[in-house]
Design a protein around this nucleic acid. Structure first.
Lengths: 142, 142
DNA sequence: CCCTTTACTTATCATTTGATAACCAAAGGG
DNA sequence: CCCTTTGGTTATCAAATGATAAGTAAAGGG
């Protein structure tokens, strides 16, 4: 097939993914967080421990702005910083107990909505879906 | 398998999709647009003609803010409004020629990056990928 | 021991985005 | 023909985000 069919499918697919994830994770974040702060916590949650530079790189934000947001999150007691003993310029950033708890709650809500969406699927379908996810992740979204 | 494995996969997968799409569509938007304005144009491009209310709903923004952004886009000559003759309160919004051109350029850039990412795949792999995309779109991201 | 680079911070400013109130005009039902 | 609802506008304000300049302190190479 022409290269273009695949691209078309890719576009509609990613659009749908964005749509559904935004729907499914609507209102899961605490009122006390800005959208950006929530995204940062999400990133820390899955990649901890991380450094400021890593957050800055992966989230495409400048170091000054990253530093500012992280300061706020630290003040809110949602994450902790440990200076790397090997290189005292670096900081290892992790979620605090409160931060873990907040993110667990958020993920739990998302999980519930996800379950509503996929609860009716048969075991065979689930297996198929898992294979599809693995395939795409390996060949397209790597 | 337990319901949870699927959810875990779903989370890492959607994270990857967000990551890759953001990477692939980085810097494709004209400097003259804010991120929001670009998103709105993207939405109009795939759904035209749309009404203000539809944009407001789908993009989760208030009518006043939608109206403001649309006014700016109209002033920039990127989209056009036609009052619905059947119901003169409504407006059908479409891209202008300039708007179409701008979005085509953007999609072309994205297409190039996509091709770089998938160029090495065999025909059989492409077919597999298309099947996977269809499956997921039908069963999960509907 | 200097000098440069890396990792991060502080301060400041402009711009973008979100939220709210108050409004107008067309549609449509009783 | 009134009254309510729907679709949209304008104005205004606060908050969030982005960008830039200028700084500190540790690391590491020569």
């Amino acid at each position: 097939m022409d290269n273009n069919t695949l691209f078309q499918k890719f576009v509609t697919f990613t659009t749908a993914v964005h749509q559904i994830t935004s729907e499914i994770s609507k209102d899961v974040k605490s009122e006390a967080l800005t959208p950006l702060q929530y995204k940062i916590l999400e990133y820390i949650a899955v990649s901890q421990p991380v450094t400021l530079s890593e957050i800055s790189d992966c989230m495409h934000m400048s170091m000054p702005n990253t530093s500012r947001e992280l300061k706020k999150l630290t003040e809110k007691q949602l994450c902790e910083r440990v200076t790397d003993p090997g290189d005292r310029r670096k900081q290892g950033i992790t979620l605090s107990a409160a931060g873990e708890h907040m993110m667990n709650e958020a993920f739990r809500h998302i999980g519930i909505r996800f379950a509503e969406r996929t609860g009716h699927l048969s075991e065979a379908e689930r297996q198929e879906i898992i294979r599809a996810l693995d395939l795409l992740q390996e060949k397209v979204f790597y």
